[in-house]
């Protein structure tokens, strides 16, 4: 594969046989940045919350704790399905892997749908981006997470739809998986901070 004929083809670049696939490394680097972004949002939220005398502010609706707890279960379940899909993928059992992928996409979709429904309710109750700093932070942090979830779901759906009998490009599978773990993994922290405390 080496030589000037295959110029630019990424496969020629890994002549030394990378110990960590490029897509995985790149995704880990991206996730690192994203974690810092969320850490900053969380820090800002905590500081503003500490500043406030009453939290949540008066006249603002309370967040649906129970429904979101159930919804958290859906998201974690989706992450677990992806984990199982990966295990099947590794041993080459592609049909089973594809089925589990589909489950992961479905559960993730349920999570986003329930979130959207909650938002529409909350907007109706008068919690908007500008109604208070409470609402601003809610829509900023949770909305940012939802944005990541939707982006990851689109990638997962694409992965699912292009899943052939020969499986899938392993590097894409790995990259999407790491990103989804990030989206799933950061959610309980956000749920605890924004909904519970």
């Amino acid at each position: 594969m080496s030589g000037p004929q295959s110029v630019g083809s990424p496969r020629t670049l890994t002549r030394t046989g990378p110990v960590i696939p490029s897509s995985l490394l790149a995704m880990v680097a991206l996730v690192l940045t994203e974690i810092m972004l969320f850490a900053a949002l969380i820090s800002s939220f905590l500081i503003v919350k500490a500043d406030a005398s009453i939290w949540p502010p008066l006249g603002q609706p309370r967040l649906p704790v129970i429904v979101t707890a159930v919804n958290t279960g859906f998201l974690l379940g989706s992450g677990f399905m992806f984990f199982l899909a990966n295990r099947r993928f590794r041993v080459g059992d592609f049909p089973a892997s594809r089925k589990l992928m589909g489950m992961a996409v479905f559960l993730g979709g349920v999570f986003v749908a329930v979130q959207g429904y909650e938002w529409s309710k909350l907007l109706g109750f008068g919690l908007t981006v500008t109604s208070s700093i409470y609402g601003s932070f809610f829509y900023l942090i949770i909305g940012f997470h939802a944005l990541h979830a939707v982006g990851a779901l689109v990638a997962m759906l694409h992965l699912f739809l292009t899943f052939g009998p020969q499986g899938q490009s392993a590097s894409r599978f790995l990259g999407t998986q790491v990103f989804w773990y990030f989206v799933v993994g950061i959610w309980p922290i956000l749920y605890y901070l924004v909904y519970l405390s």
Binding site: A39, A40, I42, S43, S44, L46, I47, K49, A50
Partner: peptide, 11 residues
């Protein structure tokens, strides 16, 4: 103050 300390340490 503690929130600033905490976020400084976290970041």
């Amino acid at each position: 103050r503690l929130a600033f300390y905490f976020s400084t340490a976290l970041l």
